[in-house]
């Protein structure tokens, strides 16, 4: 078995959908190939994280906080709040938050995508690398998961947005006015698009194409917020 074949069958392997011989071939390859073994471990970890989300409703547990704790624990000492001051005053507020927010968002997003791709039909996966709308019937599970996915992504955006807003406000620099205005305007445009898509999704629960769209829009908003954080840090 080569890397490509391993990667092709990875989803089915973790789903337990392979035959005995196929499973044995996968295990033999993973035992001899460190990168493929790492891929397998990563996918299992993401699935484990995603499975902590209760289906059908927004999770009661605060993912943001839980992930933040976990990620801060893994963060280098210098990036933690209270560590030695950074060269710029706002970086002390900003840098750890950026790292945590970005990483948390990425983990949640990947976990949710992985979850969807594992639990639903293959076509229902949110393909972030090449987003395409597909006319794929939703499974009952996909329909149930929609609010969970949306809620988790919305929370990530809210967290990142709050941090950005606090940072901009604490700077209180008149020179930031144009930048603040621009970023706010951009985020409002994306927010509007999210609101429209979510409204459509509420009327069409389980519509995979809308689910993909709303996921992409949230991802776009997160990217915008993180870019804004980087800009604020640099300016």
């Amino acid at each position: 078995m080569n890397h490509e074949a391993f990667q092709d069958q990875l989803d089915d392997y973790v789903d337990g959908a392979l035959s005995g011989a196929e499973r044995a071939a996968m295990e033999a390859h993973a035992a001899a190939c460190a990168p493929c073994a790492a891929s397998l471990a990563q996918l299992r970890a993401l699935l484990g994280l995603a499975q902590q989300l209760p289906p059908g409703a927004a999770p009661e547990r605060d993912l943001w906080t839980a992930l933040r704790e976990r990620l801060v624990a893994a963060e280098p000492e210098a990036l933690r709040p209270g560590a030695a001051p950074a060269s710029r005053w706002w970086a002390r507020v900003w840098r750890p938050a950026v790292g945590v927010a970005a990483a948390a968002a990425a983990v949640v997003f990947l976990a949710l995508c992985a979850w969807l791709s594992q639990r639903g039909p293959r076509e229902a996966a949110v393909d972030t690398a090449a987003p395409r709308l597909e006319s794929t019937p939703a499974t009952a599970e996909t329909a149930v998961l929609t609010p969970t996915l949306v809620a988790a992504l919305a929370r990530e955006c809210m967290g990142a947005g709050r941090i950005l807003q606090a940072s901009m406000e604490s700077r209180n620099d008149p020179a930031d006015e144009a930048l603040t205005h621009s970023l706010t305007a951009g985020i409002e445009v994306v927010d509007q698009s999210i609101a429209e898509t979510v409204a459509a999704l509420e009327k069409n629960p389980g519509n995979v194409s809308l689910l993909k769209l709303v996921t992409l829009r949230y991802q776009q908003k997160l990217a915008l917020l993180h870019s804004a954080m980087e800009i604020v840090e640099e300016v």
Partner: peptide
């Protein structure tokens, strides 16, 4: 094509269909 898919879909080829064009809007 499906109540779960996009509102409207159109797939077609013209002139042999060499280039691939994908268009998505909400």
């Amino acid at each position: 094509k499906s109540k779960y898919g996009p509102g409207k879909e159109l797939y077609f080829q013209t002139g042999g269909g060499k280039a691939r064009v994908s268009i998505n809007t909400f």
